[in-house]
């Protein structure tokens, strides 16, 4: 050090270092405590920021103290800075990865704004593809933020489709219910190039299929509800809801282990219609399929 001719022994340096670190740590702790006690106002954001600044200052002070007490030479510092740089670079990679994934999603377009998607256990309507997060509106109308990187990694199900795409596939036989959907959408293929071009740009042939599983406890009343009467009731229900949604709801039965599994597929031209009607549809389904139950308790 510049003010003494000979450098103090290592033990003294370590002692000095320990004391300095303890002081910095204690000072920061006291400041944070004071902040919590003194300001009773509910300015959470500002408080958090100040705390963060204190922590950062502590970190910088510790680094400076180390450099100063152990008389680290500039060359040593330089060689270390390369390592530190690499480390920070690796640290940043996570954050930058999200941004890159965001651009990728916008470019490749596995889904667009307004589409209904299912990613793992999350489902919802895409309202924004940001640089870091993609915003979804869930079935209970909560806002869900999914990291773009997760979307890139995960198995993705886009429930919003265009009939034009289906039509192309139906010609080679890769479709399930194109004819039915086409009749429900009253879809006509445009004649002439100009007409086709206009149709390509408009999204009038879009529709969303929302598929979910429910379980029917058919033995809840005695005698059990017969599956044939479930079919009758479901058919009547689907007819009622065709008026509401514009499309006929579909259903099929699955496994029967204790309860009868049933897959229900709701179709609508706007995904938001599905979000709005899903609850009411379930309530109606419950009341019609378990008709006996309603009579028993009323």
């Amino acid at each position: 050090m510049w003010y003494v001719d000979t450098s103090p022994p290592l033990i003294l340096k370590i002692l000095l270092f320990t004391i300095t670190i303890s002081l910095i740590w204690l000072g920061g702790r006291l400041l944070k405590r004071r902040l919590d006690k003194r300001s009773t106002r509910r300015n959470f954001e500002a408080k958090n920021l100040v705390k963060l600044l204190i922590s950062t200052a502590q970190l910088i002070l510790v680094i400076l103290a180390t450099l100063f007490i152990f008389e680290v030479e500039s060359t040593t510092f330089l060689s270390f800075s390369a390592l530190i740089g690499t480390t920070i670079g690796f640290g940043l990679a996570v954050a930058v990865g999200n941004v890159v994934a965001g651009f990728y999603l916008i470019g490749v377009r596995p889904f667009g704004i307004g589409d209904f998607i299912q990613v793992g256990s999350i489902e919802g309507i895409v309202t924004e593809i940001g640089l870091n997060y993609t915003k979804l509106i869930g079935m209970d109308s909560t806002v869900i933020l999914v990291p773009n990187k997760t979307l890139l990694d995960a198995k993705l199900l886009n429930c919003t489709m265009r009939l034009r795409e289906l039509e192309g596939r139906s010609q080679v036989g890769h479709d399930l219910d194109f004819d039915q959907l086409a009749s429900e959408l009253s879809y006509r293929d445009g004649k002439g190039f100009f007409q086709e071009f206009k149709q390509e740009l408009s999204e009038s042939d879009e529709f969303t299929k929302y598929s979910f599983q429910i379980q029917l406890k058919l033995n809840i009343v005695s005698p059990d509800i017969a599956l044939s009467s479930v079919v009758e009731r479901m058919d009547a229900l689907c007819k009622r809801w065709k008026k509401q949604l514009g499309f006929m709801p579909r259903y099929y039965f699955g496994k029967n282990i204790f309860r009868q599994d049933m897959q229900v597929i709701l179709v609508a031209s706007e995904p938001i219609t599905l979000v709005h009607n899903h609850g009411a549809f379930l309530a109606d389904l419950y009341q019609s399929v378990f008709a006996e139950l309603q009579e028993v308790t009323t």
Binding site: I88, A95, L131, N132, Y133, L145
Partner: peptide, 18 residues
């Protein structure tokens, strides 16, 4: 360091705040 960078990232992109 990743934790540190992520903290700054959360504070700037604000998916949530205090």
């Amino acid at each position: 360091i990743q934790n540190f960078v992520s903290g700054l990232y959360i504070l700037t992109t604000e998916p949530f705040s205090v």
